[in-house]
């Protein structure tokens, strides 16, 4: 009751402040025009469908590449040093490079090489850039999970005669992945929005579609439509993340403390 009342009151104050501001009629016209919103909606929605497809395909690839890098980086023994070196260098490089820069280099540079057998579409190379960049972050999340599994678990598995690979496959990774699912979902939500960045290569996604609509008459309502659609996508994913986390037993350990 108290929380509901205080929320309503605060919202009321904020809305009153905005609506009574001197520039409000002008802002409402250019950003919140219902007629323009309806007009732009189909184009923006079509763009959003591209964002979703890019997110789904890249999400799967990122998970595979990220997990591979994490496993490489945590391999034990001197023989595997080159693997560890490669994985570490990869993560250092692609976590350091701004995503936009990777997009430009791959999106404009790679097609110019005219490699036979590889597509030259901006969509393909833009998605590659997303996979390269995000894999570095996701690899670190997986690595944190792998290293959080207590060494006694490895000792128990090895003492049963399981090989290093079997121990990773059946004992370490299942526990590691479960622990980092909430963090991975966080990265997925982030990817969903960053998938819009491939628009810089000329691909028409939701934001680019909104920009095109806006350019017709300098009415910015399509941006608001795109923003609302992104939020509508993110909220269910955030709730799903919470749900997964709860199922894992992350109730916020400590009860009321």
């Amino acid at each position: 009751m108290v929380s509901a009342a205080s929320t309503v009151l605060l919202l009321g104050v904020v809305v009153a402040l905005v609506v009574t501001s001197p520039g409000w009629p002008r802002v409402r016209e250019t950003f919140l025009d219902p007629h323009k919103a309806v007009e732009a909606f189909p184009a923006v929605l079509e763009g959003l469908w591209l964002n979703i497809r890019v997110m789904l395909v890249c999400g799967v690839l990122i998970a595979v590449v990220g997990l591979t890098l994490a496993v490489m980086r945590t391999v034990r023994g001197p023989v595997a040093f080159p693997l560890r070196l490669f994985a570490t260098a990869y993560v250092d490089l692609f976590r350091g490079l701004p995503l936009l820069l990777v997009l430009f280099v791959l999106g404009f540079g790679a097609p110019a090489l005219r490699l036979s057998g590889l597509p030259s579409s901006a969509l393909f190379w833009g998605s590659c850039a997303l996979v390269l960049s995000y894999s570095a972050y996701v690899a670190e999340v997986f690595r944190a999970g792998i290293e959080s599994v207590h060494p006694s678990q490895r000792a128990a598995a090895r003492s049963l005669g399981l090989s290093y690979g079997q121990t990773m496959r059946h004992v370490v990774l299942p526990q590691a992945v479960r622990r980092v699912v909430p963090a991975l979902m966080n990265d997925l939500v982030s990817l969903q929005k960053d998938s819009g960045l491939i628009a810089v290569l000329g691909v028409i996604d939701a934001i680019r579609a909104a920009q095109i609509e806006t350019a017709l008459d300098f009415n910015f309502t399509p941006y608001v439509v795109a923003g609302a659609l992104f939020v509508c996508l993110t909220i269910p994913m955030a709730r799903f993340t919470d749900h997964v986390a709860r199922k894992q037993g992350f109730h916020g350990a400590g009860g009321h403390l």
Binding site: A155, A156, S159, L160, G161, V171, Q175
Partner: peptide, 20 residues
């Protein structure tokens, strides 16, 4: 080493069962 370990059974102080 894996083949050698497969011929022995080990029980640890902290059980070390696989929780998953």
């Amino acid at each position: 080493a894996d083949a050698v370990r497969a011929r022995m059974g080990v029980v640890f102080q902290a059980y070390n069962l696989f929780p998953h």
